[in-house]
C-alpha cells in the first residue's frame, strides 16, 4: 500500500507529542511499518511544533515533505495555516479553532490573521472547538485526545483498537477523562 502521511501540528505544550505516540503505536499494532518524527528541546518551548506519523508496507523517510500529508491534524488555527503547504492534493485538515497568540502578535508587531478557515481554501476541512469539548470532558489538557477521536472517525481502524492503545498510553488515573474526551471527538459532527 501507499504510505499514509499524518502530520500533527500545534504549539509547544499542547500535547502533540503524546498524540503522535498514541497514533504511532496504534498503527504498529495494526501491522504497519511506522515512522514517527518528533521535536524536542528548544523548539518545544511554546513555539510551533510538528510531528510526522507515516505508515505503510515499507516506510523510508521519517519526515513528511511539502505536498505529501494525507491528513493534517492541527491543534491550533494559525498552525493549520502554516502547515497548509504540506497537504497532499485531496488531503484532509482537522483543525481545532483555538487561537494561541504567537509573540509577534502579543507584541502587536502584527495581527493574528483573520479568516484562516477560508484561506485553507479548497481543502477538505473539519473545524471544531476542541478546547470546549476537552473542558466538557473534564480538562482543557485533553484537547489532544478529543482531536484523536475526530481523527479516529475518519479512518478505518476499529474504535476499540484506538481506545485500547489510548488507555494503554495514558496514566490510569486519567482513564475516564480520556475516554470521555475521545468519545466527544469521535461523535463530533460539523
Amino acid at each position: 500500500m501507499k504510505t499514509k502521511n499524518i502530520m500533527i501540528v500545534g504549539v509547544g505544550g499542547q500535547g502533540t507529542l503524546l498524540a503522535s505516540r498514541i497514533l504511532g503505536n496504534l498503527l504498529l499494532n495494526e501491522g504497519y511499518d511506522v515512522k514517527v518524527s518528533e521535536v524536542h528541546g528548544m523548539s518545544q518551548r511554546g513555539g510551533s511544533v510538528v510531528t510526522y506519523v507515516r505508515s505503510g508496507d515499507d516506510v523510508s523517510a521519517p519526515i513528511i515533505d511539502k505536498g505529501q500529508a494525507d491528513v493534517i491534524l492541527a491543534f491550533e488555527l494559525l498552525e493549520a495555516k502554516r502547515a497548509l503547504p504540506y497537504l497532499a492534493p485531496g488531503g484532509k485538515i482537522i483543525v481545532n479553532t483555538q487561537q494561541i497568540d504567537p509573540m509577534p502578535v502579543i507584541m502587536g508587531s502584527t495581527g493574528y490573521p483573520d479568516g484562516i478557515l477560508e484561506t485553507l481554501g479548497a481543502a477538505d476541512v473539519t473545524a471544531l472547538d476542541a478546547l470546549s469539548l476537552a473542558r466538557e470532558a473534564g480538562s482543557a489538557k485533553a484537547v489532544n485526545v478529543v482531536l484523536l477521536g475526530v481523527l479516529a472517525k475518519t479512518g478505518d481502524i476499529a474504535r476499540e483498537k484506538w481506545e485500547e492503545t489510548l488507555l494503554a498510553t495514558v496514566p490510569a488515573k486519567f482513564t475516564e477523562l480520556n475516554r470521555r474526551a475521545f468519545d466527544l471527538g469521535y461523535h463530533y459532527t460539523d
Binding site: M42, R45, S48, L78, R82, L84, P85, P104, T110, T119
Partner: peptide
C-alpha cells in the same frame, strides 16, 4: 498549496 496572506512566525518563548 499556498495559504493566502501573511503567517506570523511562532518562535519559542
Amino acid at each position: 498549496f499556498a495559504a493566502a496572506g501573511e503567517t506570523p512566525v511562532r518562535p519559542p518563548v
